[in-house]
């Protein structure tokens, strides 16, 4: 499909990675191997920011970690896991909505954090897997971000040493 056809069909190419179709509430984001509603992507962004929030150092949103989650989901997970992830995401939202009596993304950081702290009690199909993948990829994206590896825990490309018995000062 060329750009003109894409526009005609209401699709917009974004950086060649995914396309958005539809408008308003019904907007759909198409990745190579799955699609999500635009609102679901916003939800994931808020979820990721809850896992790694902005403090006196940068958090998930500024680092684009939810985009990293989706990139890894798209490229490095099986079609089965992609489907389970999308399903789990949708069920997670419903469950959180019932529990919080409003959308997860419309609650305070404190409330959202509280919800995530009680994830161990949740037993809904695919929710656990969705959350596990999200958390694993958010943590990976965070620790392996240029920001963390440069400013917070500098990665040494050239350590120039190995010491096998460094005594720690107690």
């Amino acid at each position: 499909m060329n750009r003109r056809d894409a526009l005609k069909n209401g699709l917009l190419l974004l950086g060649g990675v995914f396309v958005i179709s539809g408008c308003g509430e019904d907007q759909t984001v198409h990745y190579n191997n799955f699609k999500l509603k635009a609102t679901e992507v916003v939800f994931l962004k808020v979820l990721a920011e809850t896992i790694i929030p902005q403090t006196d150092t940068l958090g998930s949103e500024k680092l684009g970690l939810h985009e990293f989650v989706l990139k890894m989901l798209d490229d490095c997970h099986s079609p089965t896991e992609q489907a389970q992830f999308c399903d789990g995401l949708s069920r997670f939202r419903k469950w959180a909505q019932e529990r919080l009596e409003k959308a997860f993304e419309n609650t305070s950081l404190k409330e959202r954090t509280h919800v995530l702290q009680s994830m161990g009690e949740v037993d809904i199909e695919n929710v656990d897997l969705f959350y596990k993948i999200t958390k694993k990829r958010v943590i990976q994206g965070y620790l392996k971000s240029k920001y963390v590896m440069t400013d917070l825990v500098p990665y040494q490309l050239v350590p120039d040493r190995y010491v096998g018995d460094v005594a720690l000062s107690s």
């Binding site: 490095c76 990976q140 392996k144 490309l157």
Partner: peptide, 17 residues
């Protein structure tokens, strides 16, 4: 050879395909 971990698209992981 001189790339940092964050310069790899998938942080060294091979894609599913």
């Amino acid at each position: 050879t001189n790339m940092y971990p964050y310069e790899f698209e998938h942080r060294l992981e091979m894609p599913y395909e």
